[in-house]
Design a protein around this nucleic acid. Structure first.
Length: 467
RNA sequence: CGGGAAGUAGCGCAGCUUGGUUAGCGCGCCUGGUUUGGGACCAGGAGGCCGGGGGUUCGAAUCCCCCCUUCCCGACCA
């Protein structure tokens, strides 16, 4: 059988593009860097949205929607923010057939508009904390676009909150980072991450602290899967977000922002995929089980329908493949799409009172009675989910090397991550690493936990090449 | 935005060096039939202003100039 995809070992970037195309996830749009997300890619994104959204609501934030267009002057109010984003802004100068009095920018992120309205809505400490989130599209005119990983327009959620103290803001955004993002990544995406804070050089424009979840792709490069920022009082000052405290005095709010995007889909592909295509973790999969009729017999199809109905009532996301193409072709197509479990129903097996059940990640194939499918599958899905996580953890750990010098770090970063004392790096070390496109992905405490600030003593750092 | 590679049918490519009738091949697609237990087979068929715009020429997929897009390596970044 000829391989449908370029093997990973031969050309990883090419393999990635092949998966995106052959799994029918996305196409390039007509404008440079834009992306058409196809139904299967969008179904995966919708599952991500659902899982993240429920966690965001659990954390007490409410969804709202803010406008796509932002007055150019808003961006300018926070010096670092405007400096950070100016190069990648799409600016509308004409509309309605004439030049606009003030150009409007297409949002690259919405701290500024949220800030403007938070200032309007917050009067008293009783209005705090104000916990908002929106699901939206944003535009950043990036120089080197790649489907899902860096498109000019992408979909994401951005949370924006305002608090009455540094401590409350910090605790809240830490909670988001851990209980929303990291929990989603571990339990749903089956991806271990390095949680940490960014060194000052990598901080979000306008933040006093930026947290990250760094995932390791199969080529050993890092991908920032989600990010959360403590904005201090920078945006509160710029947008006059004030409240009256219990003592009757006016005080500035402390704000946060946090986001995760369609980049997660790229991370999913590059963390879990193999030479046969995507492998979607069961908790995420839009289709967890596909029941395949080996041939289009009435008897076979009836058996498929019965099995699918049983799975559905067991709470499994299932679909039926009744034919059209040859059996082998259909199997290959479902493999490329990474559906966790295939149930293959054929007349020979049926005559013996069994069907075949195949796991996508291990290719392990077992014969079981059709009646046992609905009771067995949920357990297998759970097992597969945790084994996929364990496999990722093992791979990540095996490719993370503790080193004692910049030279060794640069060596290790050719194929994976390096971990070393932050004191050994510093801004001079960062400059050296950068000569080989290596960056400090995050700072951690020695036990792997997240520091509160980069000024803590005795920190370590994870360095790697990244997307 | 710098360096490299490339744009010819939906996808992958040949043709270009040395300009010359109706631009080919494989896969995919359509029709009919046989099939379906790991990318099926036979027969017939549809589908191209050769990325766009300018030139040179009697004549351009082919030579020259400009632009656009895609991919890779960087810089920028979720």
């Amino acid at each position: 059988m000829a391989s449908a995809l370029t093997p990973q070992a031969e050309d990883f970037p090419r393999w990635y593009q092949d998966v995106v195309a052959k799994a029918e996830m996305a196409d390039n749009g007509p404008v440079r860097g834009t992306m058409v997300i196809r139904p299967y890619g969008y179904a995966i994104w919708e599952r991500m949205q659902a899982e993240i959204d429920v966690r965001i609501k659990e954390a007490g934030a409410e969804n709202a929607y803010f406008p796509l267009f932002i007055p150019e002057s808003y961006l300018a109010r926070e010096a670092q923010h405007v400096e950070g984003f100016s190069p990648e802004l799409a600016v509308v100068t004409h509309a309605g057939g004439e030049a606009l009095a003030e150009p409007v920018v297409v949002r690259p992120t919405s701290e500024t508009v949220f800030g403007e309205f938070m200032a309007k809505w917050i009067q008293s400490y009783r209005d705090l904390p104000l916990l908002l989130n929106q699901w939206a599209n944003v535009v950043r005119w990036e120089l080197r676009p790649r489907l899902f990983l860096r498109s000019s327009e992408f979909l994401w959620q951005e949370g924006h909150t305002a608090h009455d103290s540094y401590e409350d803001a910090s605790a809240y955004v830490n909670g988001i980072h851990t209980n929303v993002y990291n929990d989603f990544l571990e339990k749903v995406l089956a991806m271990p991450t390095y949680l940490g804070i960014k060194p000052p050089s990598e901080r979000f424009a306008g933040a006093i602290n930026t947290m990250t979840c760094e995932g390791m792709m199969q080529d050993g490069k890092a991908l920032q899967m989600a990010t959360s920022h403590e904005l201090g009082q920078n945006f509160a000052k710029a947008f006059d977000i004030k409240f009256q405290n219990k003592e009757g005095q006016s005080a500035l709010c402390w704000t946060t922002s946090w986001g995760s995007s369609t980049r997660l889909v790229g991370g999913l592909i590059m963390a879990h995929g193999d030479d046969n295509g995507l492998i979607v973790p069961p908790h995420l999969a839009p289709t967890q089980v596909v029941v395949i009729a080996v041939r289009e017999d009435d008897e076979v199809i009836a058996a498929c329908n019965k099995i699918a109905a049983g799975l559905k009532s067991a709470g499994v996301r299932v679909r039926i493949d009744n034919g059209g193409a040859s059996f082998g072709r259909r199997v290959t197509d479902w493999e490329i799409k990474g559906v966790p479990i295939r149930v293959e129903v054929g007349p020979r097996d049926l005559a013996e009172g069994v069907v075949a059940l195949v796991r996508r990640d291990t290719s392990e194939k077992v014969s079981i009675s059709p009646d046992a499918v609905a009771t067995s599958v949920p357990g297998i899905l759970e097992q597969m989910q945790s084994q996929m996580y364990e496999a990722q953890l093992a791979r990540r750990n095996a490719n993370t090397h503790d080193v004692k010098s910049i030279d060794e770090a640069m060596q290790a970063a050719q194929t994976g991550f390096a971990r070393l004392d932050w004191d050994l790096v510093g801004s001079a070390g960062e400059a050296r690493l950068k000569t080989d496109a290596i960056t400090v992905r995050c700072l951690q405490r020695r036990d792997g936990s997240m520091p509160v600030t980069d000024t803590e003593k005795d920190l370590i750092c994870i360095v790697a090449k990244s997307y």
